[in-house]
Design a protein around this nucleic acid. Structure first.
Lengths: 125, 125
DNA sequence: TATTGACTTAGAGTCGACTCCATATGATAA
DNA sequence: TTATCATATGGAGTCGACTCTAAGTCAATA
């Protein structure tokens, strides 16, 4: 697959795809004789992973380390697992924060809706 | 309340508290004769709101607008509600993204745990 | 074959959100 | 009163994560 195709498929800019590769967030991509990127199925798997993780805000640094560990081979399986477990913990925390904010938003929106009907906006502790 | 107290209470740096006020993310805080900030209960309410919203990643720009609308008075109630509804929509989307990432993390961690036992790491589509 | 278009790189620029710094002034303890 | 501490301001610096630019190369169409 060309970079244009991958860019469209995953809705990630070509600049970002090159950037991810440059910083080692994904392993080096195969090249054609002319030097152009030729994404394999495996490359696409990495792109998809990167997109998924980044969309949840997992930091780039963690993903670079994960990629580096993977390239080092099977003896890093435990380290990789621990890295993912740690990121999962942080992610759970974030989801909980967001859930709290969601509750607060619901509460405030509800108050505003009532105010629109009654014309009175009570004091919000 | 002094800025030091507020900073400790909400675990937000004094720099950030001043910054939020400067950019209008919260209304201007009362001052003592000497010019020092003297946070009222209402100020604290704004700080708490800011902290909650920011911890969920609601952008600063949206919060500045919300603050400005609030200061304009009761005729902006509908606009404020709509702003919050829009941010709620975006937040829900983010939570869903994170949930997907959570699922993927669980899946991958599970695979690594099995690999630790069996010594075999199967190919991950 | 000439030109257009896709792709390459290195490096600079941008953006959001702080965070730090220098300098000044008000407040408190010795 | 003097020294230290808390706070103030404006502006510069940092950091993460892209995003853009310039200059060059390779590939495909007229």
């Amino acid at each position: 697959m060309t970079i244009t195709e991958v860019s469209k498929k995953y809705d990630i800019s070509q600049d970002t795809l090159r950037y991810y590769e440059r910083i080692g967030l994904i392993p080096a991509v195969n090249r054609t004789k002319g030097g152009n990127r030729d994404y394999t199925e495996e490359s696409c798997g990495w792109i998809e992973l990167a997109k998924c993780m980044r969309s949840a805000g997992i930091p780039i640094e963690a993903l670079i380390e994960y990629c580096a560990l993977t390239l080092q081979g099977e003896e890093t399986i435990t380290a990789r697992k621990e890295l993912l477990v740690e990121e999962r913990r942080k992610l759970l925390e974030k989801i909980e924060d967001m859930q709290k904010t969601m509750d607060k938003l619901n509460y405030k929106i509800d108050r505003y809706e009532k105010a629109e009907i009654t014309g009175v906006l009570s004091w919000d502790k």
